[in-house]
Every structure is written in structure tokens, then in C-alpha cells.
Amino acid sequence: MGKEMKGYLVGPMPVEQFLKEFLSPSAIPDHEPLTSFSDGAFESTLSALQETKAYEPFVMQINTMSSFAPGLSFIDTHNHPDTTNCKLFTFQIKPDICVYADGALPPRARQSSCDISAAEVIIEFKWDPHHTPFYTPASGPSTTAHFISETDKAMDTLGQITSYTTAQLGAQYHTHAFSILIVYDQAHIIRWDREGATVSSAINYNEEPHLADFFHRYVQASPALRGVDTSVTLASAEESRLARLQLGLSATRCMLKVAVPDIDNTGSVTLVFPAPSPVGQSPIGRCTRACPAYDIDNDRVVMFKDSWWVAIADVLPEGETYKILKKTMFPTLHRALHVTTYPLSLNKPRRLTS
């Protein structure tokens, strides 16, 4: 998966620019700047003689420094794979550290088990510099060829962190996600979306405040700025009960809902559907998902499709195609079809549901 992903990486973006671009204080109401970081904050982490001995001091240090990341819990999950959400993977999903929102800390996380469906940020450690897939070019423009190492160890690391993000985006509804790669005393922040990933420049996180500042901004950011797709929400208890009954699902299955306008924009339907199960495929591209859903408004079972399309002028959105078909060839199409597009930034992939 690392070799597949390497052509979709951009960087290294200077970390100050990265934070300004993706977690700008201007986008965070009542933003409070970081004031609590001090040089040597992660000294005990760097004192670890091997990677597996670094997780505990890192978690302890960052959890005790609650002033810069209040509301987030950092859980050591390196030896506790997600065996609930990731059954379709041929390999184990067990990030070294999963970051959860305190209010949404799942039961498995309290037992140090990974729950990729609730993880906010994934942190992966490597202690050998040969495992890093990123480096800063000595000079010249930054291109994929200039900042990505293509050694076997580097590609293994890139494949590993890509697979974790694949699982996270597959188990949640997100427009984007953040992860952290720490290679001994250097850290990179990575922002992933369906177009690719942007990698920050290296951070000397024990001496520089940028990693701490990332979490300080992240915890103050809105769900949308963190990457949550706010068009999808949890279904109510009664909505979930009705949908499970109609769809033949177990009483414990987590249910979500979304409002989807019809193709004429004259109305909408509320669809309730099961939370998705991730599969081991690339996080880049259309990433189509489909499943039966319960149409609460019309008391019927329908097919729910979720996919992404590239927002460029000569690519017609799927919903517009259906409108043309309805007007010219299939006038009864509206009886069974509702489509909406959720726009993101210009020239980025956009989510389409139907």
C-alpha cells in the first residue's frame, strides 16, 4: 500500500504553514494560543532505549500536560488490535497510540483496545531513522521524488500508516483526517483526504512547540475542521430501532442517518443506515460505499450509495446526469432516486450520496 500511496503525497509543507492552512486560529472561534510548552517536554520519551518503551512515557507526558490538549485521551493500543471493526482486513489494525475525544471514549479504548471507529488521531512510532518515508530536500522544489524515501523499510512504514488511515476513513464519515508519524526525535503531521495526503516538515517535538500546538488547536477546532462529515449524524434510539427491524440487523449495530434531497430539490428523505465496516483498499479516489438503508419518511428500504467525485468543470456530477436522464429518457426516475452533493474546497474531491 505504501508504493500505491507514494504518488499522492505532497510535502514537506513547512509546519507553520501546515498549521495555518489546516488549523488556522482564524477558523477557531475564541482560539487560545499555546502557552504551556517548554523545551525538553518529551525528554523521558527520547530516553527510551527502544520503540516499545517510548509509548508509555509519551502517553503519560502528554496526558499530564492537559493544559494544551484538554478533552483528548491518548491510549497506548500497540498491542491491542481492533478486532471488531476491522474483520475484513488481512492484517491487524493496531496503531501505537490512538487519540480519542474524552466524551466519546469507547469501552474498548478504556481497556487499551483499539477502536478505529472512534479514533480522532492516530500516532505511529518508529525508532530507527531508516524507517522514515519522509525527509527534507536539501534544495530545490519539493516534489514527491524529492522527499519520499523508497527503501523497503520506508515503504513498509508508509504502507502501515496508510492502512491505519484507510481503516479510520472506512469506519467513519470524514472529509479528512490527521495522523502523526514519530521517528525518534522527529515528528510529521499528515493530513489525509480522498485526493491524497499533505505531509508537514519534520518537527523536533521535544524542543519545538509545533506538535503540542497541533493538538492544542485540534482540541479547540470544530468537528468540521477536525474532519468530521457533519452531514452524517447518529440516529436516535427510536430511529435506530425501526431501521434495524426493517434491515434485519442486530440490536447492537450502530446506526447513522443523513438527509438526502431529491433530484429536483423539492424535498428530501431521511435515511438511516448501519455504520460502515472498513475494507483494506486505498483511501484515495471515489471510495464508493453502498448498503441498504431505511427511508423513515416513506417507510421503505432503499439502496444508499456514498462516493466521491472530482470537482472539475468537465466532470458532470452524478446527480446532474440523473436529472438529464429523468427529463429526456426516464421520467419515472424520481420515484426511486434522491441525490445530493456536499461541496468541499475547490478542485478537491466532493462527497456524493444517493
Rank of each mutant, 00 (worst) to 15 (best):
P331R: 13
P292W: 13
Q172V: 06
H334E: 04
T132E: 04
I182N: 03
Q220S: 01
G267M: 06
P81W: 08
T166C: 15
A275W: 10
P57W: 13
C287M: 09
M65C: 05
Y173A: 09
E4F: 01
D39A: 06
R300E: 12
P33S: 02
A119T: 15
A275M: 15
T162M: 06
A119M: 10
G103A: 07
S163H: 11
D152A: 14
M60S: 12
L333D: 11
G248D: 14
P29H: 03
A221V: 00
A69Y: 01
E32Q: 05
G140Q: 06
P95L: 13
T132A: 12
F273P: 11
G196Y: 06
F178Y: 15
L9V: 03
P106Q: 07
L344E: 14
T35G: 00
H130I: 02
C86I: 05
Y294D: 09
F273Q: 13
F178C: 08
L325K: 03
L316G: 03
W127Q: 09
I284L: 10
N206V: 04
R241E: 15
F147I: 11
G227P: 02
N63L: 00
S112F: 14
K153Y: 05
W127E: 07
S200W: 03
S231Q: 04
L169P: 03
R191S: 01
D152R: 12
S201L: 00
P107N: 04
G227T: 04
P278G: 08
L337K: 13
C86L: 00
V10S: 01
T162N: 10
P278W: 06
E208I: 02
L49V: 11
T233M: 12
D96V: 15
V339K: 02
S201Q: 01
E207M: 12
C291D: 10
E318R: 06
V272H: 10
E195P: 02
Y164Q: 13
G2E: 06
S142L: 07
G71N: 01
A197V: 03
V301D: 02
Y184H: 09
T144L: 05
W308P: 00
R108Q: 11
L225T: 02
V272D: 11
T143I: 01
S277M: 08
E32T: 10
E208T: 05
V310P: 01
S268R: 15
V15F: 09
F214E: 01
A221F: 01
D262V: 08
Q160S: 09
L352T: 08
H210R: 07
D314H: 10
I180W: 06
S345W: 10
E16S: 13
R286M: 08
M155T: 02
A275L: 15
P278T: 08
L247S: 15
G285P: 04
A171C: 07
V199S: 01
D156I: 02
L346T: 15
S38E: 14
I189Q: 02
L245H: 12
R110I: 03
E238R: 15
R191D: 01
S201D: 06
Y342S: 04
W127M: 07
F22D: 00
T166R: 05
V10P: 00
S26R: 13
F215A: 05
R335V: 08
D76T: 13
D297T: 13
E150P: 00
G267I: 04
Y164S: 10
D193K: 06
C114L: 09
Q92M: 09
T64Q: 10
I190Y: 04
